[in-house]
Every structure is written in C-alpha cells, then in structure tokens.
C-alpha cells in the first residue's frame, strides 16, 4: 500500500502484505491482481455454493445458474432474481428491481474513474463490467490518491473473482441439497473479515485518521438505520453519500 501522500506525510508507515498496484509489466500485473483477489475468492466460495443451493431449491436449473453467474454476476441481485422468478413476478418488474438493487455500482465506477484516465475506453468498459462490492473494495484499497490503476492488474482481480463465482455457484447448484451445512467452518465470515481489514487499511491510508474514523462510524450507522426503512442496497447508497461527505468536510477542516 504505497500511496504517495502517505509516503510523504507519514514517517512510520506500517508495511502491508500488498505489492504496488498495477505498475508492473502486464503478465506480472495480472498475476499480482490474481493474488490480490485471494480474499474475494475465499468469500465467494461460501456465498457461491450457498447461492447455487438456494437457486436449485427454488427451481432454477444448473445451466441457468451458470449463465446467470456468467452474465449477471452480482451476489445479492442473483438471490433477489431467483426469489422473484420463484414467486412468479413478471419479467419487467424483475428487471426494474435488479436495476434498483445494482444502481449503487454507479458510485464504485465513479470512484475508480480518476485512476483509469490513462486507459482506453474499451479497457475501462471491461474493468467496469466485472465490478462488484468485493472487487471494488479490494481494488480501491490498493489505489492511493492519484495512483493510476493498471488494466492487467484490475482484470486479474476481476477475472479470478468472476471465475470463482461461476464455478462455485454452478457446483452449488449441481450438489444442491447434498450440501447440508454450507456455513460449516466459518468461510461465510470471510467477506465480513475482508471488509474489516480493507476498512482499517483505508483509514490508515488517509493523511489524518480522525475524519476517516468519523466517516466510517457515520457510514455504519446510516447503513443500519436506513436498512430498517429501505432495501439494503439503497441503505449502502445513503450511507456512502452521507459518510463520504462527512469525511471530506472533516478532512478539509483538519487541513
């Protein structure tokens, strides 16, 4: 996590196990991306299997699960889709609902955009096509202010995460009810642990930590309160808009 601002402002920067983002030659960069995606892979393992089982139980066929994971590729949206198909909801209503569930990706895509100004439009489209909550979180935590993202590195993260999702959901659908306890071991906690680690690294990345900690507290609070009245994905949008503003204003005052 060698972010330039951190390198100049901080004298005792703790080391992390993460190498530089996307500065290496393409093959190396792709391999670095694959390595950075390991926590996402661990998380998708449990949720992917769980989704496959749920989808199969709801009457979705194995090839349908595979196609859905290949072209839709969105965890919570796939659970919602399966639920709505099983409930016999009309296609148009399902598609509108999925748009509302996934519209939060606008924020992820916008937040990545300053880091890919040097890339071609088709490269940015490819990167965006495989953006998820988890791949965004991993990628963003490696990109300090003004640091350019390598296309090869980003595709490494995206492709291995996507491949894991397709394989695990399909395997889950094939095995179906043969898997009785998908929560065994604790892999279902992998993504929560990943979000926790990335949040700490992000806070550590800011020039001063107070505004970031305040933003995180506000973000967590708004996310929970808002999810009592709106769907969880909208609560994330509300929390992001409020918390990012709080963080930016506090950091400007501290400067």
């Amino acid at each position: 996590m060698r972010d330039r601002r951190q390198a100049t402002n901080s004298t005792n920067t703790p080391e992390t196990d993460l190498p530089d983002a996307g500065q290496a030659p393409v093959g190396r960069a792709y391999a670095d991306g694959v390595k950075d995606a390991v926590p996402v892979v661990m998380g998708y393992l449990a949720i992917g299997l769980a989704f496959g089982v749920v989808a199969k139980t709801a009457g979705i066929t194995v090839p349908e699960v595979a196609v859905m994971s290949l072209i839709l590729y969105a965890g919570s949206a796939q659970f919602v889709t399966v639920g709505l198909i099983a409930a016999g909801v009309p296609a148009s209503a399902i598609i509108v609902t999925i748009f509302l569930v996934n519209v939060r990706h606008l924020l992820y895509s916008a937040a990545i955009s300053p880091h890919v100004r040097h890339l071609k439009s088709w490269q940015n489209a490819l990167i965006g096509a495989e953006l998820t909550d988890e791949t965004f979180a991993v990628a963003a935590s490696r990109l300090g202010p003004g640091v350019p993202a390598g296309a090869g590195w980003f595709l490494g993260i995206n492709n291995v995460s996507h491949a894991t999702w397709v394989v695990c959901t399909t395997v889950g659908a094939v095995l179906g009810s043969a898997i009785t306890d998908i929560r065994a071991l604790g892999f279902d906690f992998a993504l929560a642990a990943m979000f926790a680690a990335l949040l700490i690294l992000q806070i550590n990345n800011r020039p001063t930590w107070m505004p970031a900690v305040a933003a995180a507290a506000v973000g967590g609070g708004v996310a929970l309160c808002a999810s009592l009245v709106v769907p969880a994905s909208w609560a994330i949008i509300a929390a992001t808009l409020v918390a990012a503003t709080v963080g930016m204003v506090l950091e400007e005052r501290a400067a």
Binding site: F136, A137, Q202
Partner: peptide, 12 residues
C-alpha cells in the same frame, strides 16, 4: 472517501 464510506456500510 467513497471506499471508506462503502466499506463501513458493507461491514456494518
């Protein structure tokens, strides 16, 4: 600040 904000929401 979007990553900090999103991560705190997802974690919560």
């Amino acid at each position: 600040f979007v990553p900090v904000a999103v991560l705190s929401a997802l974690l919560a």
